[in-house]
């Protein structure tokens, strides 16, 4: 590993969803942490097969939504009751009733932004370069092929044994990927 500082990892391709799923379970059971499955669509149950924990995106959504709701109420109170009070028909200057529709829409708006920003942050997107895109057949990852890539940064990574592992679990075109 030390003498191959430029190696990003080893990458193997799989033909079917079932094959990559079983292979992923084996890689997980070997104890690897820095590795990934690349697939043209989300595979049902793959998170479990890879041992990925639940996504943290909902936290961002909650923060966005709460900001929208309380921010909306605060904005309306400030504008219509505090900074320039507009008396209408002797009604209270501020009421959560009339502030609700706008606050509700702002809740959804900012929660949606939260979900998307959260997804982009957690995935570190946009990322227009990634070593895994160097594999010769990786274009098919957006079509009909599945890949497993084990990164050299994983403590268990060793070029020979990892190659052997990927071949044993059914991977073809096992390729070394340069960083």
């Amino acid at each position: 590993m030390s003498d191959e500082g430029k190696t990003y990892g080893m990458m193997a391709s799989f033909k079917t969803t079932g094959a990559v799923m079983q292979a992923a379970e084996k890689v997980r059971d070997e104890g690897f942490k820095h590795w990934d499955v690349i697939s043209p669509f989300p595979i049902h149950g793959m998170d479990g097969a890879m041992g990925i924990t639940r996504s943290k995106v909902p936290i961002f959504t909650l923060i966005g939504g709460a900001t929208g709701f309380f921010g909306g109420n605060l904005m309306i109170w400030y504008m219509n009751a505090y900074d320039y009070a507009i008396p209408v028909g002797g009604k209270p200057m501020f009421s959560p009733m009339y502030a609700f529709p706008v606050s509700y829409e702002l809740t959804i708006l900012l929660a949606a932004f939260g979900a998307i920003i959260g997804m982009l942050l957690m995935n570190r997107l946009p990322m227009h370069y990634h070593p895994a895109m160097k594999h010769d057949a990786v274009d098919r990852a957006s079509n009909d092929r599945f890949f497993i890539v084990i990164e050299s940064s994983d403590p268990r990574f060793d070029e020979k044994t990892t190659t052997a592992l990927l071949e044993r679990i059914g991977g073809s075109d096992v390729t070394k990927i340069e960083d």
Binding site: I52, S55, K56, L125, P126, M127, M133, V138
Partner: peptide, 19 residues
């Protein structure tokens, strides 16, 4: 945006889509 079909990405992506 450099999407490459990584399952670690799909996991967050599907959650965001569901939300």
């Amino acid at each position: 945006m450099g999407w490459r079909g990584s399952n670690r990405h799909w996991s967050n992506y599907e959650m965001a889509y569901l939300l």
